Simulated assay, not measured.
Amino acid sequence: MPHRYIAHLDMDAFYASVELLRYPELKGRPVVIGGGRRHQPEPLADGSHRFATLRHYAGRGVVTTATYAARAYGVHSGMGLMKAAALAPDTVLLPVDFDEYRRYSKLFKAAVAEVVGDTPPVIEDRGIDEIYIDLSSQPQVEADRGAALARAIKARVFERTGLSCSIGVTPNKLLSKLASELDKPDGLTLLREADIETRIWPLPARRINGIGPKSSARLEALGIRTIGELAAADPAWLLEQFGRRYGAWLHAAAHGRDERPVVTHSEPVSLSRETTFDRDLHPRGDRAALSAIFTQLCEQVAGDLQRKGYVGKTIGLKLRYDDFKTVTRDLTLPLAVDDIASIRRAAGECLKRVPLERRLRLLGVRVGSLSRTADVVTPATPGPSKPPSTGSLFDD
């Protein structure tokens, strides 16, 4: 079997790094991005800016990303901004600007395609700030396992964007994902299967992409904390503890085995929209506000479906209560839909099947079981432009 050389490229602190291009005076300072579009920097007469800090933040927002200087204080993505303020009160707080992040995402991906040069390049888009690249077909990679090409990619990305990235090059996607994190920021890590024992096995098991918080906690409860300890576990015991499919995958992943190809295109499984409220809302006391938000989410999902050319049969609802408990409900329709009336009506039916006594902190709407609009032989009849009442507590 020919050698595979798979690269995983991960932009370094992407959102924060884009903001530092806009505000270079913040370089080296702890900075977090989050809190929606509030906290805009205030331009001053001398051309400088006055920035908001976490010290004065009050609200329910979370950290979207943080500079490495902020991470040194223990601040990380997904942390509540109030908790981050307790750790690093003088950290600068900037609002998110997804339009700008998407623009830079397109720039860095185009730069990679220039270097790789295949037509089309074998690049798997994994989101706004990361990609996989199959370098196996490149004639120059065999001698140095892709190091020269990876360095050329890093240089071109910096030239086109002014941003640094970290790249891991290994025989497969699983190892490359791990490798790209080992020497951040601005790292280049090459790993062979012979390096797994020394570079990969000492890492926490949760670092494997696919081991989430629940599985990580379960492994720790069973005495397995590192990837090496997972690799040493008896395969039959893993199957007994985690089931045949997931247990077998855990054993293979811990040994660095992954045969997945780099996929240049994949269809989405679902489309969703959700929002976390600035304050907890009660289904009865805040009925009007929740009804408006509910309708807006359905409108947004319908717009996403129509813009991307999909219809879906499974409508889902997601609620998170003030005690952080999350519930979901789904309803599968006989025909695939993409209009707001059908989506809201089905989501309203889901709403009738969840308890609505507690206050809510998050509401989300999802459409799954997607198919291309052009592939649907008998499309659903479009509903009215204004959604009807669902009969839910949000509308009574």
Results as ranks from 00 to 15, higher is better:
P171K: 05
A232N: 07
P185C: 10
E259D: 14
D234E: 15
R199Y: 08
L222F: 05
V263Q: 14
K214S: 14
R257F: 14
R206C: 09
S180P: 00
W249C: 01
G247D: 02
R245T: 14
R218D: 03
L175Y: 04
L230T: 02
A253V: 10
L191W: 01
L250P: 01
R199E: 12
A221S: 13
D195M: 08
A232W: 00
I196Y: 02
H255W: 13
L182K: 06
A231P: 01
E259T: 10
S176H: 04
W237L: 15
T198Q: 15
N209F: 15
L203R: 11
E259F: 12
L250N: 03
A254C: 12
I208P: 00
L222Y: 05
R218Y: 01
N209G: 06
E197M: 07
V169W: 03
P185T: 08
R244I: 06
A233L: 10
L174C: 05
H251Y: 15
L188T: 08
I167K: 00
D183H: 14
T189E: 09
K177W: 13
I211F: 03
L188V: 09
A252I: 09
G212Q: 08
A179N: 07
D258Y: 10
L182H: 05
L238N: 03
E229V: 04
D186I: 02
T264M: 15
N172Q: 11
Y246A: 11
A179R: 01
G247K: 04
I224M: 05
L174D: 01
R244N: 13
